[in-house]
Design a protein around this nucleic acid. Structure first.
Lengths: 188, 188
DNA sequence: GCGCGGCGTGCACTGAGTGCAAGTTAGATG
DNA sequence: CATCTAACTTGCACTCAGTGCACGCCGCGC
């Protein structure tokens, strides 16, 4: 997986997403993608490990963005609140990306299962940060909290009407977080 | 996908799981499986949609088991408690299966991502039941609660040392559920 | 004996993914 | 200017997953 050129990377991904949003995931072969992108089949696999990777791999510069978002969290903030705000910030920053992905997923519902791992790399970064920050908590506690936050996002995403924009998504996210932190959520 | 014979089904699955626990998922081809099971390649795909299906598809009689477990829940029980008890009952009933799956996942860590969908069909059944039972709640509320319960299980499973048996798994499950329903869980 | 339907199988084909070796280009060095 | 090298790209050949189709076998009712 030796790639140096972010332009080629974008070129491939944009071609792929374009075709897939139009025809659906299954109806687009890797050959279609490389023809559209003007590269060879072999080069595709030098950039992406598989066919889904072109949808779910993070942008090359994403890790830096994540680091900024994470660094922006104030020190004393409760972890749950920090996760809530991180998701808001993340979805704001990655707005066009999320919208593009939704379009593809709308055209290819069979990918719904894979869609959970959309932001897995992001969550890994969050996990690393949290375990340093809250060194007093157990790994299990932190993982539970983070996975639950991730679940809120994943639960809410399929209900998101792309036409309502990021504001609409934020309303859903807030609703999810609020529901889970209301005192009586376990007694319904 | 026309299959009538549960014996053949078990035969294929047992052959596959045996080989995979031994060599790892990637090192076992479908041809290996069908050779071991004594059937043709084409028949394999009449029973299972893909290579992973042989690991993650439910047993033919599982839906009946799930229905029993679900029917056993008392009427007034809070949904969160019901989900907790359902998971305990499910893992008890599917003990050997879960242990087998852990063995394969131990041999093939690359499947960790897929392992989340281990019991997806079970959760679908739970979802259907809950939306009838708690018709007053919104779909979003129910999905959040159920997905969170599912997350507890998925968070806890990788930490389970198979040698501690189902009792050890239940300790982890209880710990997860208790953590999330403790009043101060959002303020760490 | 005859049709019929369910199931298993062989065959041929598409498409994903990989290892290897050769080609290309750009920059560093003499 | 010649050339060496390292990074990147490419073509080729191969394995394996997955599918459509048609045929064969067997048990069943008539």
């Amino acid at each position: 997986m030796r790639q140096r050129s972010p332009e080629t990377w974008r070129q491939i991904r944009d071609s792929a997403v374009g075709l897939m949003a139009e025809r659906g995931f299954d109806a687009v072969s890797v050959d279609d993608i490389v023809a559209e992108a003007g590269i060879s089949r072999r080069t595709y696999f030098n950039y992406f490990a598989g066919k889904e990777s072109v949808l779910f791999d993070p942008d090359p510069e994403d890790p830096l963005l994540w680091a900024e978002l994470i660094a922006a969290r104030p020190a004393g903030e409760p972890l749950w609140t920090a996760l809530h705000q991180l998701i808001r910030a993340y979805t704001t920053a990655a707005a066009e990306r999320m919208i593009r992905q939704r379009l593809v997923l709308r055209a290819s519902p069979e990918l719904a299962a894979c869609s959970r791992k959309v932001c897995d790399r992001f969550w890994d970064a969050v996990r690393a940060w949290a375990s340093q920050r809250n060194a007093d908590s157990t790994e299990l506690q932190l993982d539970l909290l983070i996975n639950t936050a991730q679940t809120v996002l994943n639960t809410v995403l399929p209900r998101w009407d792309v036409d309502t924009g990021i504001a609409g998504l934020h309303r859903l996210i807030d609703e999810g977080f609020t529901l889970l932190q209301s005192p009586e959520w376990t007694t319904s």
